[in-house]
Nucleic acid binder design. Structure first.
Length: 361
DNA sequence: AAGCTAGACAACCGCGTTCCG
DNA sequence: TCGGAACGCGGTTGTCTAGCT
């Protein structure tokens, strides 16, 4: 996309804002209010593009912003919400009064990602690296030749590399060795049905990365996060502040393969299903939950813009993506997605058998 | 003191969505 | 209904600073 013409003028100033520019912006907004950003530079006497003015105001000059460092409670909430809805920074920031999406994003990239990685937890999927690796070797229905290290996310790969690099190996977000982007290798064919493991083991885990995750699922995820922190607070004092729902290994029941790696790097083992895959709602309440979404939002004191609720709620209905019969968030998304994909493939196979055969062989 | 490195955060870029004439 | 402008978001890059050698 071409930069807007008003940002392309050669005499426009770029880079850090001076105190004088800030003062002009503050004075202008206090007089005229927010909005109409494209006309702000001219009216406020600034040699900046409107986009830059909006950014400066929303990220730094707004009077309701907090400028102190993140509290442990905020940190904990960010990690939980990221595990639930992925890098939807604006949504996460809405749950943290006084914080901007840029604040949260930067804090995640500079601090939290590193912390999780050092704990042996993949900050993308929020699973132990050992489990990801184990799942990676057990991808049902996928040819082994189709697997490649390039499809692992960079945190996992660097965690692996760290084990072979005794010291001084950089592992921060800015200084990772350049690696290929995560690659989806689902290779769905009419003859091989993707398994839950194959989907969940993918580093593009729908819990964290799939942008099609609808708002309703995200709200369920946020609900999970808030509920989880309530009923497992007993562990908080002895565990990392952002994983209070972690349990010691003796109680872990369903994380079949999260045994070695995380425990080697940390004394903790995590019951990931408790945290990520826990049933949001009993199956028979699915429809009821849809109907009660508004009630749910208010009960959780969530700050969700009406426009998002309306538009994404409509999208949810349009796509026929409802809460699954098993109630689990990830499995909801997974099953609906996979089912839709397979159904569509079957349709196309019936309709265009020759073309489909060519496509897959 | 100079150079280097990592951390922190501000700002930019590109793209998708919404608004409006 | 359409097209351009405006806005919002997430990813990426740039810049400054502190600490270390």
């Amino acid at each position: 996309m071409v930069r807007p013409p008003y940002c392309d003028k050669p005499n426009l100033k770029r880079g850090l804002w001076s105190a004088e520019e800030d003062a002009r912006m503050l004075e202008y907004v206090s007089k005229h209010g927010e909005g109409k950003w494209t006309s702000v530079p001219k009216r406020a006497g600034l040699r900046r593009c409107g986009k830059s003015c909006r950014l400066r105001w929303t990220n730094h000059l707004r009077p309701d912003l907090k400028h102190e460092s993140f509290t442990p409670k905020e940190e904990q909430l960010i990690v939980k919400l990221h595990a639930a809805i992925g890098s939807r920074w604006s949504m996460i920031a809405q749950q943290l009064p006084g914080r901007t999406d840029n604040d949260v994003k930067n804090y995640w990239n500079t601090k939290l990602r590193k912390k999780l990685t050092e704990m042996g937890i993949d900050p993308v999927t929020h699973k132990p690296f050992s489990q990801i690796l184990a799942d990676y070797g057990n991808v049902g229905g996928l040819p082994k030749s189709g697997m490649r290290i390039g499809s692992l996310n960079k945190d996992l790969k660097n965690a692996i590399l760290m084990k072979t690099e005794p010291k001084g190996f950089p592992n921060t977000s800015r200084h990772f060795v350049p690696l290929p982007s995560p690659t989806i290798t689902m290779n769905i064919s009419p003859k091989t049905e993707p398994t839950q493991e194959s989907f969940l083991s993918n580093d593009n885990n729908i819990l964290s990365n799939d942008k099609s995750l609808n708002l309703l699922s995200q709200l369920q995820a946020i609900k999970l996060v808030t509920e989880a922190s309530n009923y497992k607070q007993n562990y908080e004092s002895s565990l990392p502040s952002f994983y209070p729902e972690a349990t010691f290994s003796s109680s872990s029941s369903s994380s079949s393969s999260c045994s070695s790696g995380a425990q080697e790097m940390s004394p903790l083992a995590f019951n990931w299903n408790d945290f990520i895959l826990e049933d949001a709602f009993p199956p028979n309440e699915a429809q009821e939950q849809q109907n009660n979404m508004a009630e749910f939002i208010s009960s959780q004191n969530l700050i969700i813009p009406d426009s998002q609720i309306q538009s994404e709620g409509a999208t949810n209905m349009d796509n026929n993506t409802s809460i699954s019969s098993n109630g689990a968030i990830s499995e909801t998304c997974e099953s609906s997605f996979v089912e839709a994909l397979l159904a569509r493939e079957n349709e196309m196979l019936l309709e265009f058998p020759d073309l489909m055969a060519e496509a897959f062989y």
